[in-house]
Write a protein that binds this DNA or RNA. Structure first.
Lengths: 256, 256
DNA sequence: CAGTGGTCTAGACCACGTG
DNA sequence: ACGTGGTCTAGACCACTGC
């Protein structure tokens, strides 16, 4: 790229053809990288090409690639490791486990967790779920319910909804066999990377049914967490309604 | 600064004398900027010197100053405005109001809020509050309780604790006269800028007293939010225990 | 028009991880 | 020794703001 008083803009127009029209170069590079991630050109956990390689591929300077990667790293889509390279974020990692699970034990001790799948079936989407997943009412969705326990104490009751077209072959049996975080399974088995989520939190009273499965008194206060998770391109891929027992745990949040 | 094969490092050692010893230059600049902010050299809402001025002052390149400011802007301590300058963040702004108040109405309509101070007195700090504020048990603290209503509906009951040595002259009367966000008052009247906060969230049942002031049924589920707020240098400056009625509001959070 | 932050480049050197 | 990302610089030009 020349940077002279009368610059040659030919290569610029080449680039903008395949990307958002008039935005900063590094933003265009960022979109291109996002497209590659979305398309699965580099899988979660793998390294992406080096900054110099990408600079050569896109015909820009290393600094411009760097700024694009900086933003993706700030959004936790990429992970930089000095001396090694830049890697696609994955949910198969101890560090990342608590990025989406904000429930924390009072005494700080990380206790052993167990997950029991109570139900998993394919059904027609209710209107509210369909809307949140940007599907049509009646489109088929996977509905699973599970109970998470810490130190043998039932703590989280989750009701999860997934688009049926994407999560083919997800059954109670395959879930029961799997060890590890659910979002890790989604990555490996269905090619769906969860990248971001919004949560709406309320306090509610346990219904008799809920109280029964959580082994608490009916009417006890519960934290209700309604989450919508998104993949690349802000496409919603999961709706999750969780009920948390906050007797010995709390939901941790940081405001900046 | 020379960048030759045999560089002259004299100016480097000059700088490191007044800052953390061996860290990247831009991190040292960042600390110096933080010190100036903490010391009140530039007040909330004011512009800080231009990048070129700061570069001249610290004897570094504009790019290095820029990277320091980038991080402070990412942490919401500074606000960049193209063509105008870089400004110190302030809580006197509509945009920032909802940075620390995460309670959102179901219907999205921003309703008028009113704040009623129920109590404000200087007392000796209980052990738990003192620990959170990094004071000694029995040091004097300001304790205030207030009720926030939206559309005439009582919604938030706050119990707030502040270090007495810093918040001299804070009385129920001065609070009653003041309009606007509490953190704005803290900035203007006491020179305390809240920069970050940690929250622990639980679901609880309303006690008879709480139910009475919030005009709900005794035993109703409430969101309990325990917040510790920090100024520059991670010094705790407020402990706040809030009870939120989440009937027509929810606590909004984003996971990245 | 001048001054501010925003973008882009090119090149040097440093720090880290691996072979 | 080599390749990776990390830091730092210098300089050009762009985009926005306000006089």
């Amino acid at each position: 790229m020349s940077n002279n008083p009368s610059p040659d803009r030919a290569s610029d127009s080449d680039r903008s053809a395949s990307s958002a029209a008039f935005s900063p170069l590094y933003q265009q590079i960022k979109s291109l990288l996002l497209q590659s991630l979305d398309r699965g050109e580099w899988k979660p956990g793998e390294a992406i090409p080096s900054e110099l390689e990408l600079a050569a591929r896109f015909q820009v300077s290393q600094g411009t690639v760097r700024k694009a990667i900086d933003e993706l790293a700030a959004e936790n889509l990429l992970l930089r490791r000095q001396g090694k390279g830049t890697f696609v974020a994955t949910h198969h990692e101890a560090k990342v486990r608590f990025r989406f699970l904000r429930l924390t034990p009072d005494d700080g001790k990380s206790s052993i967790s167990s997950s029991k799948v109570l139900e998993c079936r394919r059904v027609k989407a209710p209107a509210d779920i369909a809307a949140l997943l940007e599907l049509r009412t009646g489109d088929t969705v996977v509905n699973m319910r599970r109970l998470l326990s810490f130190d043998q104490t039932p703590t989280i009751l989750d009701d999860i909804w997934l688009p049926g077209a994407v999560f083919k072959g997800l059954t109670a049996e395959s879930l029961a066999r799997y060890r590890g975080p659910l979002y890790g399974l989604f990555e490996s088995e269905f090619g769906v990377s969860m990248v971001r989520a919004d949560e709406k939190i309320r306090a509610v009273s346990a219904t008799p049914d809920q109280a029964d499965t959580l082994q608490i008194a009916s009417g006890s206060p519960l934290l209700q967490v309604e989450r919508v998770s998104y993949t690349y391109g802000d496409r919603p891929m999961e709706v999750r309604r969780g009920l948390y027992v906050t007797e010995r745990f709390f939901y941790k949040n940081s405001l900046n």
